[in-house]
């Protein structure tokens, strides 16, 4: 049983490391290309070309003028559609499995978990926290509005994801570096602070949790109410209090499921109702 849990956790880590390394290598490849050095078999795409959020912020301009916002390319639109497809099927799986900024926060969070034990990820009072969770929708509205009005990729000046992979570059605004620094330091105290409170793309994808096909479901009849699922959830969702998790913050990391935290077989699962295989 322990071995099974370990392999279930490893598969997500492997996907996260693979994506993180791939994006880092492509960014390096792009930088080296500008100095005349070519890394064989590796794309030299810009980070903007590989960000699905570029597609989201470009939508208004794309619909009204048929063009994309500066620095955004067709590949961003393709990725946007791919991620929407994944989200409609599995909810915020992009955040939990793919996004490199989410991954690095999670890895830094392991230090915080070691230092603070059970206090980790519980520093923000619940009464304030529940309102702060909607802040990211304000950020999303601002980014979409500002991008539509200016036709420029306004968000890049405060984007910690861009700063993470280009921190050495003069293209990165100081504000983005400061936000990245605060995010990484914050991750020692709070799991995925950027994702929880500020990420506009997470806000957009979070809406998919309300309508996704495969949902996190808890079997009330076998649940022993140990609340292990609640304790393991990086997004502090009270899985034990609902039969179906519809929370907009769920990142489909599966940490709460019977494959990982839940000690009872087949009690918390990512599943679709009524379909048997």
């Amino acid at each position: 049983m322990v071995a099974k849990k370990s392999s279930a956790r490893k598969i997500r880590l492997v996907v996260q490391i693979f994506i993180f390394a791939l994006i880092a290598l492509i960014t390096l490849s792009k930088t080296l290309e500008e100095t005349g050095i070519i890394i064989p078999f590796l794309s030299t795409a810009s980070l903007h070309a590989l960000c699905p959020f570029g597609g989201v912020v470009s939508l208004y301009q794309y619909i009204t003028t048929g063009t994309l916002v500066q620095k955004v390319h067709e590949s961003s639109l393709v990725l946007m559609y791919i991620v929407i497809l994944l989200t409609l099927a599995f909810g915020g799986v992009f955040c939990g499995w793919v996004c490199p900024l989410g991954s690095i926060q999670e890895w830094i969070g392991k230090i915080g978990r070691k230092i603070f034990k059970r206090k980790y990820n519980n520093f923000v009072p619940a009464g304030i926290d529940k309102y702060l969770r909607y802040l990211r929708y304000g950020v999303l509205a601002w980014v979409i509005y500002a991008t539509a009005v200016t036709g420029k990729l306004i968000f890049v000046d405060v984007d910690p994801y861009f700063a993470l992979f280009n921190f050495w570059s003069s293209e990165v605004a100081v504000a983005a570096l400061v936000i990245l620094g605060l995010t990484l330091v914050g991750a020692i105290f709070v799991e995925r602070p950027w994702c929880k409170y500020f990420c506009p793309y997470g806000a957009f994808l979070g809406l998919g949790n309300l309508i996704r096909v495969f949902k996190i479901r808890r079997n009330n009849s076998t649940c022993i109410s140990c609340k292990a699922c609640d304790r393991e959830c990086p997004m502090n969702i009270k899985v034990s209090e609902s039969k179906v998790v519809l929370n907009h913050q769920c990142i489909t990391c599966l940490e709460c499921t019977s494959e990982l935290a839940c000690p009872v077989d087949n009690t918390v699962n990512l599943s679709v109702k009524g379909v048997k295989m």
């Binding site: 279930a8 956790r9 598969i11 997500r12 599995f90 499995w97 599966l254 494959e259 699962n269 990512l270």
Partner: peptide
């Protein structure tokens, strides 16, 4: 039910 390894591969 979708298990972690299947989800990882699907993603």
């Amino acid at each position: 039910r979708i298990r972690a390894n299947v989800l990882g591969i699907l993603v």
